[in-house]
């Protein structure tokens, strides 16, 4: 076991979906690493490839090229039977708890399932553990006997989290876990995730289109655009001193709930690009206010900036 290196390393991940005579370029060379206990936010708009990257890490999608390493093992080509032994260590919470929890199972059984599969606990001990997990995520024990359609979105998302942390994973991938929830419930779930992060010291990959959410919970942020990471850095670096024009536009489009806070709004040009047709140069060039000819001709790599942990894929910064 590797104890000092990164927990997760994704190298040059490429994912193309082919079908109907078209190719969707969902991921176009993404590299990312997450240290043990670190929480990384993956932000981007629809079509940026952030969900595909999450599913690729979980091996729900097979990479077209590139590799995924977990704890020093290259798991890119592992068979599902071998992957299963790794599953307790890498868990996932999905966007919609209604869609991601089996509607025919009781909530208690859903939380118990990972314990059943990966531990040798007796039935009684499992039930005890399920109740402890329910308490931990502030889920009323009454709900354990109910089905998915008898609980609210917030309650179900708590159950999803309980299910995901049952095996005490080292990495939790969360794909928009709060975006289908009401504001006060969203705050409650984030508060729960925040406390779990401190308590268990597990690493998180938090996928979201909402910068406020990512700002609230992540140590480091990766900004994705058109299947590439265009900027990555510490939370402070990204939110205080964003470099990439896209990151700046994204930040300026965030709406503060305080009417006194008015961010300077950067103009937004054109339409989000289609992942069907990749431009040769920078993906953002055709919408970028400061683009020049060089931006449209050659691919632009992530380059580290002077202060170390801040990289950006833009030749103009």
């Amino acid at each position: 076991m590797n104890t000092t290196g990164p927990l997760l390393t994704v190298r040059d991940a490429v994912k193309h979906f082919r079908g109907g005579g078209r190719t969707v370029h969902a991921l176009n060379g993404v590299s990312l690493s997450i240290a043990p206990g670190e929480s990384v936010g993956l932000v981007g708009e629809s079509g940026s490839g952030k969900t595909t990257l999450g599913r690729l890490i979980l091996r729900l999608e097979q990479a077209t090229s590139g590799s995924v390493e977990f704890d020093g093992h290259d798991v890119t080509t592992w068979r599902e039977s071998r992957m299963r032994r790794l599953r307790p260590a890498v868990q996932m919470v999905f966007q919609s708890p209604y869609a991601s929890l089996n509607p025919r199972m009781k909530i208690g059984a859903l939380i118990e399932e990972p314990l059943k599969l990966h531990t040798t606990l007796s039935k009684d001990d499992r039930k005890k553990e399920v109740r402890a997990l329910a308490r931990r995520v502030a889920l009323s024990e009454v709900l354990l006997e109910r089905h998915v359609n008898q609980a609210s979105g917030g309650q179900l998302q708590r159950a999803s989290i309980a299910r995901a942390i049952a095996t005490r994973p080292k990495l939790l991938v969360l794909d928009e876990p709060t975006s289908s929830l009401d504001l006060s419930v969203r705050a409650e779930i984030l508060s729960l995730l925040g406390s779990l992060k401190e308590e268990h010291g597990m690493a998180m990959l938090f996928i979201s289109h909402d910068l406020d959410t990512v700002h609230a919970i992540c140590d480091r942020v990766c900004v994705m655009y058109l299947g590439r990471i265009v900027e990555t850095g510490s939370r402070e670096a990204i939110f205080r001193a964003p470099l990439h024009p896209y990151t700046r536009t994204l930040l300026s489009a965030q709406l503060s709930a305080d009417p006194r806070v008015t961010r300077e709004r950067l103009p937004i040009l054109g339409e989000p690009p289609s992942p069907l047709r990749l431009p040769p140069g920078c993906g953002y060039a055709e919408r970028c206010p400061i683009a020049e000819t060089a931006c449209t001709t050659k691919a632009i790599a992530l380059t580290a900036k002077a202060d170390g942990d801040h990289s950006v894929a833009c030749i103009k910064t």
Partner: peptide
């Protein structure tokens, strides 16, 4: 007040509970 507090996600993530459990 509670709704506006809930919008302050950074405060929520560090453990301040804005509202009693949300039962509609």
């Amino acid at each position: 007040t509670a709704l506006l507090a809930a919008a302050d996600l950074a405060a929520a993530a560090t453990g301040r509970r804005p509202l009693p459990p949300s039962t509609p």
